[in-house]
Design a protein around this nucleic acid. Structure first.
Length: 739
DNA sequence: GTTAGGG
DNA sequence: CCCTAAC
């Protein structure tokens, strides 16, 4: 087996870290923050390439820039090339399928498990953490004791070691309980002293991680990887999984391997890996359901050699996920918030088939989500996420995922979630639910299979003269637009929406076979997309609606074909707009409609769960179409300006002048979240252009000539007087009042 | 983060 | 509507 000589650490986690001084650790975390996401994506991509093969090549990490500008630059490059969630899903699904097909032997039978490791951190304040740490260690051990069978030998070994170690270390450093199995002493980077020492050593661990990144090979995977490759059941993903940033919250399911079913329940220990040569699973406190942990069926690749075999396969660097978990978490949260607030996932046309068929080629689909410019994300939205993350602490899978993980983890989470929903039937050893109360009975698997996606209420208007091809395109774009922001999954049982993410399937009544026929799923637009901020109270957990300081204007992109023609048929009919022209009231669908649990929402896609069926079909669903222009999915939905909006714009510009788009936005379009000041500027530009061309040349909803005249007048005026009048601009407040 | 301008 | 440069 592979991961023999590994050192396993069972350092008990500690509680959330209070503010810590900025130190080398901090710096290291920054590095991790910066690099991890990309490393993850690269890894996934690589895995995709290597799908089906054991030759996993570690991605080459970029040079870590020192300057802020350099960071931004590189980061952007990274972001611009990232894979979209669905790509990941495709990858995961594809790999999963392949693996399942190729391996009849469950991982659990083979033995080793990855599990475990624990990391963390030595705390700078051992005294504070002493109790919790001990307790955790105890829990873990107890949990471990439930194991039985050969495959648990390793666990037992760990348990044994932990006990010994505990007794040895407790007095001096209870906070860092380490389990050590054999490992080579020559490990230059992760010297034992660094990882197994008492509190205060964490910094080293972190530095080590940072060093790895700095070396550009955080996940290098030497020939000897830990995986139990011999059983052939391990997936590439099971090998080097970056987890570093995950050592945060025990509830987060995102930290598990992309396609390990076991990961779905978020109860198992996290794997920590840096170099793929070794994996150090994490054990952290707050892992909710330890009782189920013992299952550790497949995928628990324990890097420990139970036989004490130290043939080290080159696994000399046990990674330690470091920890200063809270800091890392904070960083992750920040990034996530930023990500969620300013970007949305792009639906990629990547064909899952490729994955299923294990075609190695990436086909150049390496793009990911588009950077949504921050200016386009409303402040409120950002704020919302912020709040959300706070309240999400008690939430379920999704909440945790959204709020407590890093970007990369988010992706993992998403894929896992989807996986859980769509692929859970495949012998997933663990439940597909999020956390569940401890001490529950072992999970029984619930088999679900989704037959097809139904797309109701997809209204499309298209000229008679349009070609069939354009019709197809239009439909495609309409669908893509809906999918563009990523999807949320809603679960309906007997027509009733199950809102509590924390419920187990059993608790929700989904575990009973006879009820599965009445189980439905909905695909809902991701609130992060465009103005479609929220779907009402649909899922307060997800967006933290409940914690939103104020009701946000609910805007929703109508499911009607958006951006289909120049006529802009997708836009809602113009609404009267007294003072706030665009306050998103042009939405066609009221929040109530959207959130009504009893009926299929107009914009959600109904799914029907049906008993066993071809998994592959499911996997392909979100990715099936492969538009020629993948960008279409990421592009914001086109929302032509209504006459009322134009009027408001003209009025504002007349007062404020050109060149003050932010003020224009604030005064006239403050509540129109879908109109950024750039939009307004652009619109003005087109208005000026429109006003200058002949009416015959104009397209779209006709703008009254009167308005166009005003446009020209104002434009001419401000072109002349802009410079000098801007010197003494009246206060915005007054202007707004005037307006 | 804004603004301006090209695409 | 997107993207980027410039500030």
């Amino acid at each position: 087996m592979v991961g023999s000589d590994n050192r396993i650490q069972a350092v008990t986690p500690r509680r959330a870290l209070p503010d810590e001084p900025i130190t080398a650790t901090h710096r290291a975390l920054e590095v991790a923050e910066f690099l991890l996401p990309m490393s993850l994506w690269d890894m996934v991509l690589q895995k995709r390439v290597d799908c089906g093969s054991s030759g996993y090549q570690a991605p080459v990490m970029p040079h870590f820039p020192r300057s802020a500008k350099g960071k931004r630059s590189v980061r952007k490059k990274v972001e611009d090339s990232q894979m979209c969630a669905f790509d990941l899903l495709a990858t995961v699904a594809g790999n999963l399928l392949s693996e399942r097909e190729n391996s009849s032997t469950p991982c659990s039978d083979t033995g080793t498990s990855n599990n475990v490791a624990v990391k963390d951190t030595a705390t700078e304040d051992p005294l504070d953490k002493e109790k919790p740490c001990k307790l955790e260690a105890f829990d873990w051990l107890r949990c471990t004791e439930d194991l039985s069978g050969p495959e648990n030998d390793l666990k037992m070994q760990i348990k044994h070691d932990m006990k010994e170690n505990t007794s040895k270390t407790t007095s001096s450093d209870p906070a860092s309980l380490c389990v050590k199995s054999d490992m080579s002493e020559e490990d230059p980077i992760s010297g034992e002293s660094k990882f197994f020492g008492a509190g205060g050593k964490i910094g080293h661990a972190v530095d080590t991680v940072a060093e790895r990144y700095a070396m550009g090979r955080p996940y290098s995977s030497p020939a000897g990887s830990l995986e139990c490759k011999e059983d052939g059941s391990k997936t590439p993903q099971q090998a080097g999984r970056p987890v570093a940033g995950n050592a945060i919250d025990g509830n987060a399911p995102h930290m598990y391997s992309l396609n390990d079913d076991m990961d779905l329940d978020g109860k198992t220990p996290t794997l920590v890996s840096s170099d793929s040569n070794f994996e150090v699973p994490l054990y952290r406190k707050n892992i909710p359901c330890i009782s189920s942990f013992p299952k550790q069926d497949e995928c628990m690749d324990l890097p420990v050699d139970k036989d004490g075999d130290d043939n080290s396969s080159g696994c000399t660097h046990p990674t330690v996920v470091t920890n200063k978990a809270s800091r890392l978490q904070r960083i992750g949260d920040r990034r996530i918030r930023k990500l969620l607030a300013s970007k949305f996932w792009k639906v990629s046309p990547t064909m899952l088939q490729d994955d299923v068929e294990q075609k190695p080629a990436l086909r150049g689909k390496r793009m990911c989500y588009t950077r949504q410019r921050t200016q386009r994300s409303s402040f409120k939205r950002r704020k919302l996420f912020y709040n959300c993350s706070v309240s999400a602490s008690d939430g379920g899978i999704y909440n945790e995922g959204v709020s407590n993980i890093c970007e990369k983890d988010r992706i993992k989470l998403e894929t896992n979630d989807l996986h859980a929903t769509w692929f859970g039937a495949n012998g997933a050893p663990s439940s597909t639910t999020g956390q569940k109360p401890c001490c529950e009975l072992p999970d029984y698997r619930v088999k679900l299979s989704i037959k097809s996606f139904k797309v109701p209420e997809l209204v499309i208007e298209i000229p008679e003269t349009a070609t069939v091809g354009s019709l197809k395109r239009t439909v495609s774009e309409a669908v893509t637009a809906i999918l563009g922001g990523g999807l949320r999954i809603g679960v309906l049982l007997q027509g009733k929406k199950i809102r509590h993410d924390n419920k187990t399937l059993r608790q929700a009544g989904i575990s009973q076979g006879d009820k599965l026929d009445n189980l439905g799923f909905t695909l809902e637009p991701n609130p992060g997309q465009a103005p479609a901020l929220l779907t009402g109270s649909e899922d307060p957990h997800f967006l933290g609606l409940g914690c939103a300081p104020e009701p946000l204007p609910l805007a929703r992109i109508p499911p009607t074909a958006p951006a289909t023609t120049d006529q802009g048929v997708s836009d809602a009919s113009p609404q009267p707009m007294p003072t706030c022209p665009e306050s998103d009231h042009d939405s066609v669908y009221s929040p109530a409609d959207a959130s009504s649990p009893e009926k299929t929402t107009a914009n959600s896609l109904a799914l029907v769960a049906v008993p066993p069926m071809n998994i592959e079909a499911l996997a392909m669903v979100p990715l099936r179409s492969k538009p020629k222009r993948p960008e279409a999915a990421q592009r914001r939905v086109r929302r032509p300006f209504s006459v009322a909006e134009v009027e408001a714009l003209v009025q504002a510009v007349e007062k404020l002048g050109t060149g003050r788009w932010r003020d224009v936005k604030l005064c006239a379009f403050e509540n129109a979240n879908h109109r950024t000041y750039v939009d307004l500027k652009d619109k003005w530009k087109t208005l000026v252009h429109t006003a200058r061309i002949s009416p015959q040349q104009r397209r779209g909803e006709p703008v009254p000539q009167e308005l166009l005249d005003r446009v020209l007048t104002a434009h001419a005026y401000w072109s002349q007087h802009q410079a000098k009048l801007q010197l003494k601009p009246p206060p915005s407040a007054e202007i707004c009042q005037l307006l």
